[in-house]
Nucleic acid binder design. Sequence first.
DNA 1: CTTCGTTCATTGAACAGCCATTCAATATAT
DNA 2: ATATATTGAATGGCTGTTCAATGAACGAAG
Lengths: 199, 199
Amino acid sequence: MARVGVESIRRQQLIDATLEVIEIHGFQGATIGKIAAASELSVGIVSHYFGGKQGLLEATMRYLLSCLQEDASKLMAGQPNTPRECLMAIVDANFSGVQTHAQSAKTWLAFWTQAMHSPELMRLQRVNERRLLSNLIFHLRKLMPGESAQATAQTLAAMIDGFWLRAAMSEGRIEPDQAVALCKTYIDQAIKANNGASE
Amino acid sequence: MARVGVESIRRQQLIDATLEVIEIHGFQGATIGKIAAASELSVGIVSHYFGGKQGLLEATMRYLLSCLQEDASKLMAGQPNTPRECLMAIVDANFSGVQTHAQSAKTWLAFWTQAMHSPELMRLQRVNERRLLSNLIFHLRKLMPGESAQATAQTLAAMIDGFWLRAAMSEGRIEPDQAVALCKTYIDQAIKANNGASE
DNA sequence: CTTCGTTCATTGAACAGCCATTCAATATAT
DNA sequence: ATATATTGAATGGCTGTTCAATGAACGAAG
C-alpha cells in the first residue's frame, strides 16, 4: 500500500473538489456525486474518510479558515510593525486570498449561510470572528481610547465582511485592491478623528 | 369564488409562510411541503399561483425588497432634510426592518447566497444595490468632492451589508442600534475628513 | 525471483428516503 | 349549471448512505 499518508492526500483531494464544485454549482448543488466526479474518486470514499457529507463540509470550512490564518501569519511576520502598519497588514491578509481565488468569496458566503443551521460550523465561524476582532482592538488601543478602539474595530470588521459579500456578488470581476484601499482610508480617518484623546 | 382578489391573498399567505419556514429551517430546509403546511394550504397551490418553487422564492425576495423600499420612503418623507440628515435617514431605513424582524437578516443572507446561482434573483439584488449606492452618492456630493463621495458611499454600503451579515450570524441577539450608531459615526468622520476640499 | 496470502484502500450498484411537480377529482361561489 | 379555486395522492427524479466485491501493495515463504 502507499506508505505516505494516503489518507491526508485523499482528504485534501476531496476538500479541493468540494471547493471546486461549490464554486460552480453552489452549496445546494454540491452533491456527493459531483464532488466524487470532480475528485476522480468514488462516492463511497467520502463516507470512508469523513463519515458523511456533513463531515466533509466541516472539514472544508476548517481548511478555508486555516488558509486565512496562514495568510495572516505570513503578512504579519518580520515587519517593523507600528500599530498602524499592523492594522494595514491585517486588512491585506483578509483580502489576499481573494485575488487568487475569486470564487472563494462565494464559498465563504455559502458557508456563512449554512453555518446558521449547523452548530459546528457556527462555532468555527465565531472563533474566527473573535480572533479578527481582538486582533484589531489590540492594535487600535495603541492609537486611540479603548472605547473608540472597540467601535472602530467593529466598524472595520463589518466593512471587511461587507466587501467580501460584494466581492462574492460581483460576478467574476472583483477588485480587492479597491476594497483594501477603502479600508485603509477608513483606518487613517479613524485614527485622525480619535488621536490626541488618549496619548 | 371570493370576489376580492383571492389571488393576492393567497400569494401573500404563501410568501409569509415562506419567510416563516426559511427562518426556522433555513433555505435548504424550505420545502414546498413545509411551506404549504405553514400556510395551511395545499402543496399544489404553489405551482398554481407561482408556477413552481422558484417563482415563489423570487416573489418572496421581491416582497422583502419592496418592504425595504417602503421603510426608506417613510423615513425620508417630510423632513427638513439637510444632506447629512438624509444620509442618517438612509442608514436608519436600512436597519429599521431588523428590529421587528430579527429573522429577516437570516432570510436576506439566504437570498444573497441563492442569488449567485439564479440570474433573476441576482438582477433584483443588483437593482437594489445600485439604488442604495446612488442615493448615498447623491447626498454625499453635497458634502464632499465627487471622488470622496464615491469612495465614502462604497465604504458605507459595504459597512451596512457587513452589519446585516453580523446581525444574521448573532443568533437571536442582535443590536441594530449599535450598527446604526457606528454607521452614523462613520458618516460624520467622513464628512469631517473631506469637507472644505470642495466647498 | 516468484508465488501467495493478508491487509488496507477503493469502488459503484443497490437501497431507502425526500422532494417538486402534476393532474384528475373535489369543493365552492356565482 | 358553470366557472373557478383547491386538494392531495401518484409520479419520477435526485440524494446520501451502505456494503459486498474488487483492486493494489506489501511481506513472507518457497
